[in-house]
């Protein structure tokens, strides 16, 4: 089991040596059982750090914010920032490196292995417990979680409240790191694409009805985009600004200001937004599940990305974030890529 003390020790030592500017990790959210991101700058603050099954967030997102901040500063502190990552999060770093969005020397990676478990899914937890009574959730022995409520401690099998993505995960140890805490444990709790199975047996119309119902709920708050470590485009296609067409507006200006997606949260535009987003995440999404977690109207966004992940893997043998030196999924091809569907 990963010891919290080891994480703290590592963080203390890199802060002491001045190796990093600050560390992004997890801390407790006051009396609430969930964690929140922690920004640790001073050695004494490392005591706030925690490591438990509520460390759900993908902190790699903050590398983007750091990059933007640095670009604005005249004399930026060029030291790397430390970031605590799980297996899935570490692959997000690999994608950012592959796309040359960040440099390896910009980040000090503290990898923490998920070993036999993973992180919780609040929706599953709520079905089993009254959230208000929960004081704390901890890793137990083997793959158990220990839940502390007012009435005492209960041990349950992790699988009962594990996030779906963790159950399907087959890469639960960080693949890139400066230091790795915990052990590499091979484990697979289920088929990697288990959640997609239910779509295989349903008809086209049933699929459509499912997605129509789900995507019509979208209020286009863009929380999914804001939380995504891969959504770093300077100008998102969903934000196309309107162009005032004047007599002297050239054809070229018009061509460059095409509004592919309108802002109104109506069916067709919601579909545009989500299809484009899924396609833009194909071969890049590492299934950290953050988009689905933050969606205020509970749209199962993971399925869209998972579908792309499945096709990338089955048709092109590609998995996102394994090797930053290899070309990206859509920047590459093989002579014998499948083409049965082409007339």
């Amino acid at each position: 089991m990963v010891k919290l003390d080891d994480i703290k020790k590592e963080c203390k030592s890199i802060l002491e040596e001045g190796k990093v500017k600050y560390i992004v990790g997890y801390k407790r959210n006051n009396n609430y059982y969930m964690s929140i991101p922690a920004f640790i700058e001073k050695i004494e603050e490392t005591d706030q750090l925690i490591w438990d099954p509520t460390c759900v967030y993908n902190l790699v997102r903050f590398l983007r914010d750091e990059k933007l901040r640095k670009e604005r500063q005249k004399t930026p502190d060029t030291r790397p920032i430390g970031v605590i990552v799980k297996g899935c999060d570490s692959r997000a770093i690999n994608v950012l490196l592959q796309e040359k969005f960040i440099k390896r020397e910009n980040v000090y990676i503290i990898g923490v292995a998920c070993e036999k478990s993973g992180v919780i899914e609040k929706k599953k937890l709520r079905k089993k417990f009254n959230e208000k009574n929960i004081k704390q959730i901890e890793f137990g022995k083997d793959n158990n979680f220990i839940i502390t409520t007012e009435k005492g401690k209960t041990t349950i099998s992790a699988e009962e409240i594990l996030a779906e993505r963790c159950i399907e995960c087959n890469n639960n140890t960080p693949v890139i790191y400066d230091v790795l805490l915990g052990e590499k444990v091979e484990r697979s709790l289920s088929e990697h694409f288990r959640s997609l199975e239910k779509f295989e047996s349903i008809s086209t119309e049933e699929k459509w009805n499912f997605w129509k119902k789900e995507l019509d709920k979208c209020i286009r708050c863009y929380a999914c985009r804001s939380v995504c470590p891969m959504c770093y485009c300077d100008e998102c296609i969903a934000d196309s600004i309107s162009l005032a067409v004047k007599p002297d507006t050239t054809a070229e200006e018009k061509a460059q200001k095409i509004r592919w997606v309108e802002k109104s949260p109506v069916s067709s535009e919601n579909f545009s937004y989500h299809l484009i987003r899924a396609l833009h995440l194909a071969g890049r999404c590492i299934d950290c599940g953050e988009c689905e977690r933050v969606c205020p109207v509970d749209i199962p966004l993971r399925y869209l990305n998972k579908k792309m992940e499945k096709e990338a893997s089955e048709q092109f043998g590609y998995t996102a974030g394994l090797d930053p030196e290899k070309p990206a999924l859509v920047s590459d091809f093989k002579d014998d890529d499948p083409q049965d569907f082409i007339i």
């Binding site: 086209t204 699929k207 997605w211 899924a278 194909a282 869209l304 579908k307 792309m308 569907f341």
Partner: peptide, 12 residues
């Protein structure tokens, strides 16, 4: 291929 798979997946 990806576009085609995605369109079929959402029920087109």
């Amino acid at each position: 291929t990806l576009v085609k798979e995605l369109l079929e997946f959402i029920g087109i």
